[in-house]
Design a binder for these strands. Sequence first.
DNA 1: GAATGCATGGTTTTT
DNA 2: CCATGCATTC
Length: 753
Amino acid sequence: MSSTLSPLLHGLNVEQQSAVTAPDGPTLVVAGPGSGKTRVLTHRIAWLISERDVPPGAILAVTFTNKAAREMRERVDRLLVDRDATGLTMGTFHSFGVRLLRENAGYVADKLGVLRNFTIYDDADQMQTAKAAVVAVNLDPKQVPPRRMLARISAAKSMMLSPDDVAAQAESYDEEVVSRVFREYQKLLREANAVDFDDLLVLPIRLFDAVPDILFRYQTRYQYVLVDEYQDTNRVQYVLVSALSELHRNLFVVGDPDQSIYRWRQADIRNILDFEQDFPDARRIVLETNYRSTARIVALADNVIRQNQERIDRQLRTDNEDGEIITVRELTDQQHEAQFVADEIRRVMHQTDWPGDAFAVMYRTGAQSRVIEEAFRLSGIPYQIVGGVRFYDRKEVKDVMAVLRLLHNPYDQAGLERVLENMPIGRGFGPKALETLLQWSADHQQSVLAGMRAANETIGGPAFTGSARQAATRIAEAFDRLTAAATSKTMSELFDDVVAATGYKEAFGEENEEELERWANVLEVRADMEKYDSLPPGEGLAAYLEQVALIADVDTLEDDQRGRVTLITLHSAKGLEFPAVFITGLEEGLLPVSRAVEAEFDDPQAIEEERRLFYVGITRAQKLLYLTRAGSRIAYGRFQMGVQSRFLDNLPHQHVREVGRRAALSPRGMSSLTARTQQGFTSSGQAPTRPAGYAPPVRSYTSGERVFHSKFGEGRIIEVVDRRDDQELAIEFARHGRKRFMASLAPLDVITD
DNA sequence: GAATGCATGGTTTTT
DNA sequence: CCATGCATTC
């Protein structure tokens, strides 16, 4: 390396540079929001390749989403001048897990009993399997909800517990039940030659245990292991990463404990907090200068996160300018809230020329997007939703996908059930026949398709009734033809065969608008598959299915969707940034979510995680930040009064302007309706008490009041016109004459003296 | 075995 | 409010 500064270090601050050029050995980078974490990672990788001559194939970088991986790879490519990053392994934990299982398919089949063409079960498949498992162990799905079982099973897997482990540790009937369902669930997965998301992490570790040579090969290969979002890794991921980096010990992790928001998914914050205990020689680098947000936003974020008890004290800093004041806004109900967001986006767009994609609207639960969507449609604001019903979750898309899955993995029970239930080809093959088939498959260790084929074998075949046998024969023939097509035709040709052989097209009416659209979605799958036409037939199918299984909501977020406002959950928003951010639904029960509020006394961590989530949202904003809430909203079809979120307490009032209805804010703890009624009967005339330091509540202005405007200085209100949710003010300024403002938007303070 | 209608109960968050 | 599951009907 020459003595001149590497171009890779240009524009990096001292801490960032020391992270990028950190010597070998374990390194922990604690990176606050907007502190250039992605830059550090990409520059580090580029630096290893170009300055340290590390072969790209010796580097493994793990990210949280596919999108992040994609972007990071592009950035590394751009940073490398006369080299390229071919061979660099970059992806999510799950995609890496799949890759590992595929690369060692022979051993995986021998030692773990999972064949090379395994299917990755999605949520619905997992749920179906969990339900079948509950039934199989003679329990009632109504009393033992499969949903909850699935959560428990997933939790167990995340901690690398086997059904036997769970059984051994069981101390209650409840845990006993979990272990039994877990064992059955696992058995069903194997019968279907399927894996769930957790298996993608657990199976590689089991493989390493079974065949240490394989682990050694990967340890040798990956001289450098880098992990992004380390605060959100769970136990399995921790074990995987530790194992892989054990030989070279070049583990470089980046994370921020304050942004840990996946505890419910067994993310273990101790992974990052204890990093230095796990690796006593670890180097620690702290990035705390924020380059993303205005000083006001940073101050607010800092103020919010400081209220968490369980945290390492850290100061967020920025050299950015103050920026615009932050707006806290209360609206009467969720429709008004949505309309406010729409109107405000319109207004700011007009004023700034920012495109729609400069804006993001965030919320705690997916259900909240609906009303916002409606308001946007009415206002003609283009938007894209992250989450909600994904394209690949649409029924018609999943139906077609199920056929493809079955062609790839003839054991795929969940796939077959879907086909039989929803496609014309399944006519005449009902639940009874299915049960017979599944039983036969389990008994004979044969695939479900093989069972269909064996329908006419009088000895040893499944004991179908006459009509079911006919149907089975028909189905078997269709799948035989399709299986042949799958190995000889391109993906788009295969698609055509699939819809023809299953009679699926006929299932859609011609006149019905909705059905036409659903059919259009099916055709969209074809367009999607065409991208894989260039691959050899068998491989195209495998690659396509895998891609679809591991795709996440954020992965579909398009950067080139110019002009579209992003609607997104707070969870999905992690790692993103936008010039303007609206965080909606700042109400008790929503943010923090009710489950956390209920658990408040048993589990204070739950509320703290909610606060971190709020913090993540705040720190996505670069220039403008709005926090909104509705005074009431319709939940479960019923009217409900809202109580302001505790997270709006104690905001630094110099950075915040609160605008809302005149109605007093109710104290928490009782239903707001009750609170208001009680207030109505109080004769003391005293305002309800508030926690100390609470910023003055939003107020309505009255004519004659003296005010201070941040730009025009002192003035007096001479006219007030009430508007919906707002007031129009005419103000006479001492030095600037008369001006008109909307109360909600003008940077005004009332001069009380 | 399929279509239709009613009741029920459920909402965090996601790879 | 909604999606899902179950019962009733043909």
